[in-house]
Structure formats: structure tokens, C-alpha cells
Design a binder for these strands. Structure first.
Lengths: 342, 342
DNA sequence: TTCGGGCACTAAACCGCTCTAGTTGCGGGA
DNA sequence: TCCCGCAACTAGAGCGGTTTAGTGCCCGAA
């Protein structure tokens, strides 16, 4: 005989399948003595629920889905992502909820997977990352009616829950700090312009130009890779009027930028100040250590997990959680612009 | 009406459920014209399979399970793990197989999950990491009869497949290199002694002592954390007869060790050579850059994924794949021991 | 004594799909 | 002309649970 089923237990105990089901689910309708006996036999026979069978009846999958449309290789490289993932898992595993993870080619494929998993009850909810400026996923997920937490904001995501940090505030704090140090030529090596948070950062910088009396405040878009980060840095440092400070949208790119500065004999921080969005071990052990906007990404993952679990428990209780704005951790890579500057 | 089922399609087309099932699964038994019509209607109604219902009948889950008994926070910190994970995903997503990921407290809980997922058909197979010296999981997984790939070896894992690199060879290559440079006092900051690969590395070092005429070859066990790595380094450097070279079992610990050396004013590499098992961005950007045993962890993950997929396709074809032995990448952290040494 | 009500439990439908056994209709060979 | 055999399809039983609509039975109140 294969795996025991409730029918086997029922037969052995001499009751009906229904009674066994009630007993195993701690539901009223069976006498205590019978319940004890059923549990006993179930244990003896080493019975375990068959989740597929339960799912047919509409039960929980005890898993949440995370579909990522990115090259898989970047996941291992980005400390942000690794941290987020582990924070997520930590939060979910408190309730023994697993994470169903899949990497796909593009957003179209991602949406297909949402439809699949939703209709097959593969997961109880979705977590959406890499929010785009005009994101087609939002609409689909709303239509599917599956609990969903969007990481990113602020802004309308229809009826979906969201967890976000204020990228605008964060960028402003960096720019103000640099301006206070005396920097007027500030450049920004941004990430993918399609991302919503990239846009908000670019706009925040642009908006500061007049207020802080900046001479120059240019944003260069990249794909977040270290190579494009390096290329952008090279371009900036080759200008006649080179920036005295560069803000990078990720720690990986900041590190690449620091390397380029060294290669071009531009001294950091004397001739160039460097600031990174996202803090990690990378920025700490760089030489010089890089000033960075730090946030507890692991905790962020935990918050997303919590929002997700809450949403699954009460699908109508939409959440909109603003997390702490990243704070600036000043290290050796920033200083007042050198006197030699014009 | 909720989601369309094959019954809905059957009704609309005017055939039986069975015919629809045959048509949708590309199975003989329906005329081409009928099949086309069924597919057409299915598409119109936006039908999708309900995997839970299929699973009841014994179909694939299109997912493999990875259960990890570690504190979640280490996942984000260890580049090795992040890389492995992304390599795995990359390999699996080629066949649209998802990864079902869960972090648990301990091995006992891990085993419980294996039983659960196996009996519920939650996954088609398991990937086992962090192989222990006498690992209770092996037996359970064999008994469950679910396709399983063990990462680690060599050695018997009963009937389970495995993918492994030769840690002994790797360690020997490091020790021989250091000995050739003239080092006689070599220490080893090891990982968890319960891990099989830790044991193999420790033994390889011990075995080299006589052959290479080493004065000293001590292994200190740690839990792989940077703090214990630092503590072990402090202990080693505080000895009357301090080692002239330290081999670390992970890049994270090597970095911590480098920090301790700086703090204790021990110059690297003049007074102390440092080598790391596992290469990553951490070793590259350290100052000085750390000599490391490098392997393509992303590719390793891909190989595991491949073995897994092959095993699922043909459960009886046991695999035993030895991957390339990590090669030593020499950087600035190693040199001949200083002349001042005794 | 009768009846209502509640408890403990049973029987069977149901979830969506697969698969086997069986039915129908049609063409071809004897 | 009859029957065989095959292709095309249908009916319905399962898969392992959950859940609902009962069914006895006992007890207490009228």
C-alpha cells in the first residue's frame, strides 16, 4: 500500500472519512475519545495531508510566489536582492510559508506565470518587485484577485498592497548633504529608467538644482550593472567640467565607479566624492569606504513578508506601509570639493 | 462564473470532458478538427490547467524543493549561497521549473518538510545542501523515493545523486602553494566541523604536515560567521609562534581576518599571507586583494539544476558528477614569509 | 408519554482533471 | 450482406481530501 489516506484511517478506526477529517482538523463534530483514537491511528500509520487534494477543495498552498524578470546572474551579485530574499524568507518561515521562486525572461512571461499560479492555486499570494513606471503587472494581478504586495511606491497600485521607502526624500538628503559640503557639480549614475524608483530619484535631483543653486545636476541611466556604472563614470570624469560628486544608484555601481576613479587618477574624496544608494559589505570594505544610504534590507524583506501574511489572512485589508527612509552613513568617500576646483 | 474548467469547454464545444482532456494534452483519440476546435475554445475562454487537480492524478509539480536549515540572515551575506541560488534558478527556469524554498530551524524540521512535500507532491525533487558528516537526511530521502541531488561529496549517499567538488584536492593545492613560498606555520580557520567538506579540508591539511615538512598546521573550527572568523584570527595572531599564513574556509571570514590583521598591525602579505576558500567580489575588492580558491558557483548551481532535471526525467539514472576543482587565483594577500621570521 | 433539540457521526457530493472501459459509427474485406 | 476492426468519442470512476445534508440516539422538558 502506498501512502495512507484518510479512508485508510477511517477503515481502521471504524468511522467515516468525514469523522477523520473533522478530527484531524480540530473541528467540532467528534467526541474527544474518538478524536484521540483517530489521531493515534493517524500517527501510527504516519499519515500526512496531501496538499494537492486540499488545494482542490480551495485550501491554502502555504506558499507565496515571487517571479523575477531579470537575468539570474544579477541576483547573486546584488547584495540588495540577496538580503531582501533572505529577509522575506525569514518572515515567511515564521508561519512555515514557503517561497515559490521563478526567474523568467521578461515581463510578459512573468504575467503568464501569475495567471498560471493563480489559477492553479500554486501560491496564496504574490510579491512584486522592480516596479515599473507604467507597470502592466498591476492590472493583471488586480484582475486575478490574488493577494499581492508590491515592493515600491508611493503611488496607486490599484487595490494592491504596497511596502515602500521614500526614494525622493532619500535622494534629497544626499543632495543636500553634498551641497552643504560645497558641491555644485553633482552627477547621478542612475539605474534603469523604466523603474519607478529610478525616476523618482532622477526627478528629486533635478528638482534640487535651483533650490540648492547647483551648476550641474545630470542623471545618466544605466542597467544597474557594474560595467555600465563604470562606463558612465568614465564619461562623467572625461568631461571638461567634471562633477565633484557622483551619486550611484547601487552599491555595485559605486564600487565600479570608485575603481574607475582610481584608474583615471582622480583622488577620492579629494577630487571626487562618491555616494551609494544601498549599503552593504561592499561599501564598507571598499578603499576608501563609501558613504552610503543605508537601510536594513533584511528587515525590509521581513516587513514585506509580514504584509503578505496579513493580506493572506485578511484579503480585504489593504496595506500601504511606508518604511523608514534610508539614512545617510558618512564614510571616507565624501568630503568638501578640493580648493583646486573652479 | 469562476475560472473555466474542462467541463465548461466540453459543454461549449459539445463533446465530453475526456475528449477535451485528450485534446489539451496532445494525446491521440480525437480527430484533428475536433482538437483544433477545442483548443480554440479553450483559448477563448482563457482556460488554464489546475495543477492541484493534476497533481491528484500524479502529475508533476514543476518545482524542486530546497530546504535550508540555517539562520536566514546568513543567506544574504554569503556570496556563495546567493550565487548558488541564482545558478540553480537559472538552470531550472530553462524548463520553467520553479524553486520551492523554505528556511527552517534545524535538520529535524528540515526532514519533516521533506516528508510533507514528498507526500503532498509539492515538488518533483529535492536539492540537499550543507552535507553533514553523518547526515540523517540521506536515509529519509532515500526512503521517500523522491529524486534528490546532494551537493557535496564524494562518498556514498546511498542511491541519491550528487554533485561535488574535490575539497581535498583544493586544500592540497593551497597548502602546496604556501609551502612552496616558504611557509611552514600554516593555520586554517575552518567552518562548521559538522560539515563534511570542513572535515575533508581539515584532514587534507593535517595529512600535508609531514609530507611538506610543516612545523605547524592547526585548524580552528568556527560557525562560518565573520565574528568567529575574526576571533579565530585574533587567537592565532596572539600566539607566541604566530602562523605566517592563514587559510580561511570562506571569503567572508577571510575578509574579517584581514580586518583583524590590520587592527593588530600585522602587515599583509609581508608578515601574514591570507588565502580564502571561495572567491567573490569581496576578495577582489579587499585591500590588498585576497588570494582565493575560485570556482564558478553560478555554474555549479547550473550543474546541480541540470542533474536535478535529468533525474526527474529518468529517476533511475543516478548521477554522480564531479565538478572542476577550484583553482587558486593569486592576488596581493600572499607572499613569501618575511625574512624577519624565525 | 411525547416531542424537540442537540450531539456524534455517516453518506455522498464535490473540487478539476486523468484515464480506462465501453459505445458508436463507419469503412472494408469476405 | 454481414461482420470485424478501428477511429472517435462518451461515461464515469477515481485521486484525497472537505463539507453539507442527513440519520440515529439520548436527554430533558412539557
Amino acid at each position: 500500500m502506498g501512502r495512507p489516506t484518510i479512508a485508510d484511517i477511517a477503515e481502521r478506526v471504524g468511522v467515516s472519512k468525514g469523522a477523520v477529517s473533522f478530527a484531524l482538523n480540530g473541528r467540532p463534530g467528534v467526541a474527544e475519545a474518538t478524536r484521540a483514537r483517530i489521531l493515534q491511528v493517524a500517527k501510527e500509520m504516519n499519515w500526512r495531508p496531501h496538499s494537492a487534494a486540499r488545494a482542490l477543495g480551495g485550501a491554502r498552498a502555504e506558499a507565496v510566489g515571487l517571479v523575477i524578470a531579470r537575468p539570474a546572474s544579477t541576483l547573486g551579485v546584488e547584495p540588495f536582492f540577496a538580503q531582501l530574499l533572505s529577509g522575506l524568507q525569514a518572515g515567511l518561515s515564521a508561519q512555515s510559508v514557503a517561497m515559490h521562486l521563478l526567474i523568467v525572461e521578461d515581463v510578459a512571461a512573468e504575467i503568464e506565470i501569475y495567471r498560471d499560479w493563480a489559477s492553479a492555486h500554486t501560491v496564496d499570494g504574490f510579491i512584486v518587485v522592480d516596479l515599473k513606471v507604467s507597470d502592466p503587472r498591476i492590472e493583471v494581478l488586480e484582475e486575478l484577485g490574488v493577494p499581492t504586495v508590491v515592493l515600491g511606491g508611493p503611488g496607486r497600485h490599484g487595490s494592491l498592497s504596497s511596502v515602500w521607502a521614500d526614494d525622493r526624500e532619500a535622494m534629497l538628503s544626499v543632495v543636500e548633504y553634498l551641497a552643504a559640503l560645497g558641491h555644485r557639480h553633482i552627477a547621478h549614475v542612475a539605474g534603469l529608467p523604466a523603474f519607478r524608483h529610478t525616476q523618482r530619484r532622477m526627478r528629486a535631483l533635478r528638482d534640487s538644482t535651483r533650490r540648492l543653486d547647483l551648476v550641474d545636476a545630470v542623471s545618466l541611466a544605466t542597467d544597474f550593472s557594474d560595467s555600465e556604472g563604470a562606463a558612465a563614470t568614465r564619461a562623467l570624469l572625461s568631461r571638461a567640467r567634471r562633477p565633484t560628486a557622483i551619486i550611484y544608484d547601487s552599491d555595485v555601481m559605486a564600487l565600479a565607479g570608485l575603481g574607475v576613479a582610481g584608474e583615471m587618477r582622480v583622488r577620492v574624496p579629494d577630487e571626487l566624492s562618491i555616494v551609494a544608494f544601498d549599503d552593504s559589505v561592499l561599501t564598507r570594505i571598499a578603499h576608501p569606504a563609501i558613504t552610503a544610504l543605508s537601510r536594513d534590507t533584511f528587515a525590509l524583506g521581513g516587513q514585506v513578508a509580514e504584509a503578505m501574511l496579513a493580506l493572506i489572512a485578511a484579503p480585504d485589508a489593504r496595506q500601504d506601509l511606508r518604511t523608514a527612509t534610508p539614512r545617510l552613513v558618512v564614510r571616507r568617500s565624501t568630503a568638501a570639493p578640493g580648493a583646486w576646483q573652479g
